[in-house]
Amino acid sequence: MTFAPGRAPVAGRGAPGAPAGPPPLLELRRVRAAYGAIQVLFGVDLTVPAGTVVALLGPNGAGKTTTLRVAAGLLSPTAGEVRVAGRAVQGVHPEDLARAGLCLIPEGRGVFPNLTVREHLRMMTYTGRSLADIEAVTYERFPRLADRRRQLAGTLSGGEQQMLAMARGLATDPALLLLDELSMGLAPIIVEELYGIVAAIARDGMAILVVEQFARTVLGVADHAAIMVHGRIAHAGPPAGLADELSAADLGGTSP
């Protein structure tokens, strides 16, 4: 397989090769990654330009979560290059990326079950914002969390836990937000609410990479979409044209 530069799945707003403009916030080039002997990513190219929402879709086991883990520094790629805001971040620890403004909300409730809501907000101060700011933003956006500030996160409802996890993406004001399966196990109405928030913060100019298994929830929000199959980007383009490709991928088809 070849990956000509022209085939880079998601082009930035400035055409590729144009020297002007800020570098994309996240750029993966021919990234390969493996868990021990099991290779998962086979050369992934992906770009998230500033101020856009990119949706990364695909069936189970395609490597979407792994792509996010590589981007956030939790997993080192075995080959290829990861750039965050134009800088190569090989070997940078996830905690340093987090402090620099990269925020990954992992799949399945990214909360600490034995910490209270308020302690979660306190943990968010590692990004450099003050606790007062974080509390103000969080409680304004999610008034329900204000009522539960002394409660352990493990005792919150699924939706409230996801709100608490989401709150980190809002309150710490990251430059790049990575969302993994926000909809997992949640009632549709809550999913809708959460994606409403995603759309709102995207309008404020945050770069966002959203991973979802089911497309319909996210395509309305995304500026670009990429489909991932078997550890490679199979298709990329504007979200509207992707519906057909997506059903093929959902059925377990391979890349052409």
């Binding site: 939790l74 905690e95 987090a98 990954l104 992992p106 034995n114 990004t127």
Partner: peptide, 12 residues
């Protein structure tokens, strides 16, 4: 509770 989540939050 969750070592890798703690790192994602910025804990060293």
């Amino acid at each position: 509770d969750d070592r890798s989540l703690a790192r994602l939050v910025g804990v060293r």
